[in-house]
Computed example of a mutant assay.
Amino acid sequence: MSVDVPEQAGVAPRQYSRAAVLAVWAAAAVPMGLLAWVVAPALAGSGSGDRHTIPALVAALTAGLVWQCVLVVVLVAVEQRSLRWRVVREALWLRAPTDTAGRRGGRMWWWVPVFVAGYAVLQLLPLGFPAPAGHDLNALLTSPGGREVLSGNWGLFALVVVMLLFTTVLGEELLFRGLLLPRMRGAFGRADWIVNGILTGLYHLHQPWSIPRSLLAHTLLFAYPTRRFRSAWLGIAVHSASSVVIAALFLTLVLR
């Protein structure tokens, strides 16, 4: 009989009710929507152009992602009554991938490039719909105005890197794959990873045009490997691959 030893390092993650899952989802999604559609335009001012719009949007979204990290820390501290790394690691599945026989790490890490390749293919599919002008951050940063704003702007580049870090390691992935997914089996059974991916896709109220693509990516390429190998590092690693590419692209624009 196999024993799940890691979860004995602290209090075993409690299972959330459906209402609790939706509450955590709303605590992440609603602030991001408000920050993108209300706060960022207010910070930028009307008719301010890319020079003000881009920093305002990056700062607003970064604040929302940092809030998600704070939310994870608070919920884990209340549940586990400890923030020691040994406890946090198991509570958030920040451990090496584990197969059904209890073996950890090793060849299972080779699944990461497989899912990364799948994510790359997904980016080529014609999914989603056009974004409203002035709200698609990727389009803004790569536009002529965005390239001008980024040129030599190391402060903005540093903020973009922080935003990407909290998207894939400390915020979005940590909340949805590290906190929520291990606590959804009681409410959703074996469909927990499917519901998790759907909720993460629908969380993108700050960029709703990306929801169709996000639904597929977060369900099949982030949530599934995380549940299959009981390791949030799988989702984090696959999602981080795109962040590395984006950061490299922005770095070339800063250096111009």
Results as ranks from 00 to 15, higher is better:
19 A>C: 02
238 V>M: 02
139 A>R: 13
44 A>Y: 12
162 V>K: 00
174 L>Q: 01
178 G>Y: 08
30 V>F: 02
36 A>N: 10
201 G>Q: 03
207 Q>Y: 08
29 A>M: 10
207 Q>C: 10
181 L>E: 06
121 V>S: 05
187 A>C: 09
41 P>H: 05
72 V>D: 06
202 L>S: 05
228 R>K: 13
10 G>E: 00
9 A>V: 13
224 Y>T: 01
135 H>S: 11
236 I>A: 11
128 G>V: 11
177 R>C: 10
148 E>I: 07
160 V>Q: 04
75 L>P: 00
62 T>P: 02
127 L>N: 07
214 S>L: 14
130 P>L: 11
105 G>H: 08
95 R>W: 02
251 L>K: 00
31 P>F: 02
123 Q>E: 11
111 W>Q: 13
61 L>S: 12
208 P>M: 01
112 V>W: 02
232 A>N: 10
222 F>C: 06
228 R>N: 06
241 A>G: 15
82 S>A: 10
255 L>C: 02
120 A>V: 15
145 G>Q: 04
246 I>M: 07
139 A>E: 14
40 A>R: 04
116 V>R: 00
231 S>H: 10
26 A>W: 03
237 A>D: 05
206 H>M: 08
236 I>P: 08
8 Q>R: 14
94 L>Y: 11
8 Q>I: 04
102 G>R: 09
34 L>A: 14
110 W>G: 15
120 A>S: 06
39 V>D: 01
86 R>F: 02
187 A>N: 09
199 L>I: 07
209 W>S: 11
58 V>D: 03
148 E>K: 07
225 P>T: 04
92 L>W: 07
54 I>K: 02
151 S>E: 08
102 G>H: 11
175 L>M: 13
61 L>W: 12
235 G>R: 01
99 D>F: 09
47 G>Y: 05
246 I>N: 05
249 L>S: 11
37 W>F: 14
11 V>H: 14
29 A>D: 08
179 L>T: 07
106 G>E: 09
61 L>D: 14
240 S>V: 01
186 G>T: 12
202 L>K: 01
201 G>T: 06
13 P>K: 00
206 H>L: 03
28 A>V: 13
114 V>W: 00
